[in-house]
């Protein structure tokens, strides 16, 4: 038996690019309302970063800016910049569609299409014009395996996806996002509608997926943030209060507001 068996916390061991996603002096408005005050943070490659904070703190707004989902809202504007691997997501030369291909999204409520399991997974590939059955089959199996769903659905790929359980549907949505070969996965409260067992499966999946993807997750569950993330950002009233390793945030945060929030003494 050796001391060397104890591995350091992955968060402290950034092997990928430390500024994979670089958010610089970023502020954001819905009309006249400033939803995000100027904030700066870097998200390292192949890490899980959790955004936490009370409702209305801006965590989902920031998440939805990472693939410019907020562009669909009228009257929005921003200041500062967000860059992925050094390239601004607001670069006029960058197509929003290609950005969203690189930055997949999983929503709070699973939203499979009323199609077969198979067609759900390969949907984006078909939209991109892929019709070769072997390629689609391979993408389907690979994505479902990565989403830890293959064993459960391999014999009913042609069944309607709406017949799956809630947890399976959410993993199917993750498989659908993965099939697009993104570099980043955004997850907005992915477990809020799931029971503890299905939540556990999604959390295990997140732990597996971070070896290949950079994951940003918004969650109201501090326990979930603590369990799955390497870094945590705490937001309050549109302001980034503190951003650090998850261990630091939950064991010894620097800011009194963070301490109050994580210990339930807020408000």
């Amino acid at each position: 038996m050796s001391n060397a068996r104890i591995q350091p916390r992955p968060a402290a061991d950034i092997t990928g690019r430390p500024d994979f996603i670089s958010i610089k002096n970023f502020g954001f408005w819905y009309g006249d309302k400033k939803a995000l005050k100027s904030m700066t943070l870097d998200i390292p490659e192949r890490h899980v970063v959790a955004f936490i904070g009370p409702s209305g703190c801006g965590k989902s707004t920031l998440l939805r800016n990472l693939n410019r989902m907020n562009d669909l809202v009228d009257g929005i504007r921003h200041e500062g910049d967000i860059a992925i691997k050094g390239q601004s997501i607001y670069d006029p030369g960058l197509e929003v569609i290609s950005l969203r291909r690189r930055v997949g999204m999983v929503f709070q409520k699973s939203n499979p299409f009323p199609k077969s399991v198979y067609e759900n997974v390969v949907f984006a590939l078909r939209v991109m014009g892929v019709s070769n059955r072997a390629i689609l089959d391979e993408a389907c199996e690979t994505s479902l395996r990565k989403a830890a769903l293959w064993e459960e659905v391999k014999d009913r790929l042609n069944d309607n996806a709406l017949g799956l359980s809630g947890g399976q549907m959410q993993r199917l949505c993750i498989a659908r996002a993965i099939a697009n070969r993104p570099e980043i996965l955004l997850m907005d409260e992915p477990c809020s509608a799931l029971d503890p067992i299905a939540t556990g499966k999604i959390e295990e999946l997140i732990h597996e997926l971070k070896t290949q993807f950079t994951i940003v997750i918004v969650t109201h569950s501090m326990q979930q943030a603590a369990r799955v993330s390497d870094r945590t950002a705490f937001f309050y009233l549109g302001e980034l209060i503190e951003y650090d390793t998850t261990e630091k945030i939950f064991m010894n945060p620097s800011q009194a507001q963070t301490e109050a929030y994580i210990s339930g003494r807020f408000g």
Binding site: N3, I6, Q223, A226, R227, T246, E247, F250, M251
Partner: peptide
């Protein structure tokens, strides 16, 4: 040193993993 390491691991587990 091992005692301190075990203490750190206990605190970490209690804090992060419920």
């Amino acid at each position: 040193d091992l005692e301190k390491q075990v203490d750190r691991e206990i605190m970490r587990y209690l804090t992060l993993f419920g």
